[in-house]
Design a protein around this nucleic acid. Structure first.
Lengths: 341, 341
DNA sequence: CTGAAAGCGCTAACAG
DNA sequence: CTGTTAGCGCTTTCAG
C-alpha cells in the first residue's frame, strides 16, 4: 500500500540509493536522472517515511515541549513563539502538559527521550528530583529551560530579568505618589516571584519618599489574588496600590477590590506582571510588566537547535530578555484624602 | 554511546530477540531469563528507540493535532482533553498551529503523514482545497474533525449540537421577558455560527410572545463583538438583550456596552456561547452556552485510537455532544420602561 | 554519476 | 522457551 524508495527505484530504473540522493540533496545526480526520479515520485505520490529516515540518520526532527499547562496564557504565547521557530526550521513540537505532576513529568521526559527528540524545552523543572535531573542531563539531549534564572541548573535557558521587572513596577507606583503599597507575592519559594519581590523592595529602598510596603504570600492564581486582597482590604491598612506578582493574580485582586465596593484605579491602583493578552481586555485595562513571551519561546527553540547541531560544543547557554512596563488604566495617583482603605 | 538491545543481549548472554521479548511482553520468556534481562537493562540504563520500533511495527504512537491556534481558549480546553486521553493511551501529540493559513496547514498535514502519525485531529479543515481533502482521505490515516457538523466531510468527527445551543440561548432570553434581542453572528459562512443563529430564530418562532430579532454579522472576535455592538447601540433600536455567537464576541460586546454607559444586565442582558474559562472571571460573570470542550478532545482521541487499530472497519464515526446553559449574572429580566436603548 | 552493500535498532515469524 | 533470520524504509560509505 505505502510506496517506498524501492518502488520508485524499480519504476524509474535506477538504484534505490540514487533515488534517495535525487530526492534529498541536489548533489551527485545527473539532472536528467533526478528529473526522472522526481517525476516518478510525484506520479506515485511518494511520501518519505520519516521514521526510517530518522532511524538511519539518528535525527527525529522533533522537539519536546514540557509545560505545566498550555492553558496558562503565558505558556500559550511561549508556545506560539516556539512553534513558529520550529516550523520554519522544519521541526515539530511534541507538546506535553505535566500539570506539575512529578510522575507525569518524569514519564513524559522518558518517552520524549525514547522518541529521540533532538531537544527538550521545559517550563517546569522544579518537580524533578535530583536524580531525575541528572538522568536528563546525562541523556545527551540538549535541554533549554524556560523562565528559570541563569545557572539555576546546568542546562541552557531563556529567561527574563525578573528583578528589573520588580523595580519597574515598584517605581511606577512610587512615582505616582503611593505611600502604602502591597505586594502580592506568588509564592514564598518560587525564584521568579522572589526576584520580583526583591525588585519591588529595591524600588522602595531607592525612593526618596517614605513608603510602606506590605508583602503578603499566597497562591499565584486568580483565587489566590482574590483571597490575599480580600484579607488585605479587611485589615484596612491604608493601602492605595497593589502590585501583583503576575497578571492572573492581579485579576483575582481586581475582583476582591470591586467586591469591596472600591474602584480601580480611583481607590486602589493595581499593577500586574507578564502582560498576558487578557490584561488589555479586562476593565480597566491592566498596567503590567511585559515579558517578551513569544520571543522567549522563539529564542528557546533557536538555542535548542543550535545545541542539537552535532559538532556544537554543547556548552550551556543562557539568554536573558529585558522587560518593560506597559502603562494602562489600572494605575493612577492616589486619591487625596478620602476613600483610603 | 547509546545503548541498544544488542548490548543487553551481549551482556546478558541471550539473543537479542529474547531481550526484545523480555522487555516488551511478558509471554514466552522464562521468568529467570526475563529478570536477568531486566536487570541488565536497568543497569545499563537502557532506553528503547521508538523510531526503530516504530519503523519495525509500522506504528509511531503519535497523533497529530492541527488547530488554528492553541491560544484560543476553546482550543486550549480541547487540547487538554485530547492530551489526557493520548497520555493514558501511551501516545504523544504533535501540536500544530495553522493560524488558518492554508499553505501552513497543508505542509503540516504532509509532514504529519511523513512522520507516520497514527491519526490526525483537526479543527480547521475549511482552509483545505478539495484535492487536499482528497489527498488526506486517501492517506489511509484516520482523521477526526473537531466541531464540524456531522457528514460535512467524509471524516469522523466530534461535535456539539449547535442548533440546540442556539435554542437554549434564545429561549433563556425570551423566558426572561426580552422583546427585542440581537444576535451577533460570528460569520455568514461558518456552519457552526449559522446553526447557532438558526437555533436562536427557532426559539423565537417557538415563542408565544412576539419578539423582534435583529441579526448582525461580523467577525467572531473581541473586536468584532465590540464593533457590532457599538453600531447596534448607536442605532437605538430598543434592544434589551444580546446573544453573541461565542464568548469572546460577547466580551467585545460587553466592552461596547460599558463604553456606552450602560450596565449589564440592568440595561442590556448578554449571553455568550462556549463557556470558556474566562466567562466566569469577567464582570459580570457571563451567562453562556456550555460546550463540553474537554470531553470532546478526549472523545476525539478515543475515536481516533479506535480507528487506528488495525482490523477496525474504518467507517467514519461521529459523536455529537449536548450543550447546556450556564446561567450567571449577565442576564436578567429587562428593565421596566426607562433605560431602553 | 550510479550501483552494491551494510547498517540504523527493533520486531516477528519460523525453527529448533 | 530461545535463537536464527528476515525485514521495516532509508542513508551512506565504498567501489566501479
Amino acid at each position: 500500500m505505502t510506496i517506498t524508495l524501492k518502488d520508485i527505484s524499480r519504476e524509474a530504473g535506477v538504484d534505490i540509493a540514487t533515488v534517495s540522493r535525487a530526492l534529498n540533496g541536489t548533489y551527485g545526480v545527473r539532472k536528467a536522472t533526478r528529473e526522472k526520479v522526481l517525476a516518478v515520485a510525484k506520479r506515485l505520490n511518494y511520501r518519505a517515511n520519516l521514521l526510517a529516515r530518522g532511524l538511519a540518520m539518528g535525527r527525529s526532527h522533533t522537539l519536546g515541549l514540557l509545560v505545566p499547562d498550555v492553558g496558562n496564557p503565558f505558556v500559550t504565547e511561549l508556545f506560539r513563539g516556539a512553534e513558529d521557530a520550529a516550523y520554519s526550521a522544519g521541526y515539530h513540537l511534541l507538546l506535553c502538559n505535566s500539570y506539575l505532576d512529578p510522575a507525569r513529568e518524569v514519564q513524559y521526559i522518558r518517552s520524549l527521550l525514547d522518541k529521540r527528540v533532538e531537544g527538550i524545552l521545559m517550563h517546569s523543572v522544579d518537580a524533578l528530583s535530583k536524580t531525575e535531573v541528572k538522568e536528563l542531563a546525562n541523556s545527551n539531549v540538549p535541554v533549554v529551560l524556560l523562565c528559570r534564572p541563569p545557572n539555576a541548573y546546568s542546562f541552557s535557558g531563556v529567561s527574563v530579568n525578573q528583578f528589573e521587572g520588580g523595580i519597574l513596577g515598584g517605581k511606577h507606583l512610587i512615582d505616582l505618589g503611593h505611600k502604602t503599597v502591597a505586594f502580592l507575592s506568588g509564592s514564598r519559594s518560587h525564584p521568579n516571584f522572589i526576584e520580583r519581590g526583591k525588585g519591588f523592595m529595591k524600588a522602595i529602598a531607592l525612593s526618596s519618599e517614605k513608603v510602606t510596603s506590605i508583602v503578603v504570600h499566597g497562591s499565584p492564581s486568580f483565587g489566590g489574588g482574590y483571597q490575599m486582597t480580600k484579607k488585605l482590604l479587611q485589615q484596612k491598612r491604608g493601602i492605595t496600590a497593589i502590585f501583583a506578582a503576575n497578571d492572573v493574580t492581579a485579576f483575582g485582586a481586581a475582583r476582591a477590590i470591586f467586591e469591596a465596593g472600591l474602584r480601580i484605579p480611583d481607590d486602589i491602583s493595581l499593577i500586574g506582571f507578564d502582560n498576558v493578552e487578557l490584561a488589555n481586555i479586562v476593565r480597566p485595562p491592566l498596567t503590567t510588566i511585559h515579558q517578551p513571551k513569544y520571543e522567549m519561546g522563539h529564542a528557546a527553540v533557536e538555542l535548542l537547535l543550535g545545541l542539537a547541531k552535532d559538532g556544537s560544543l554543547r556548552v550551556p547557554e543562557h539568554r536573558q530578555f529585558g522587560v518593560q512596563i506597559v502603562e494602562r488604566n489600572s494605575t493612577s495617583a492616589p486619591a487625596k484624602k478620602i476613600g483610603r482603605v
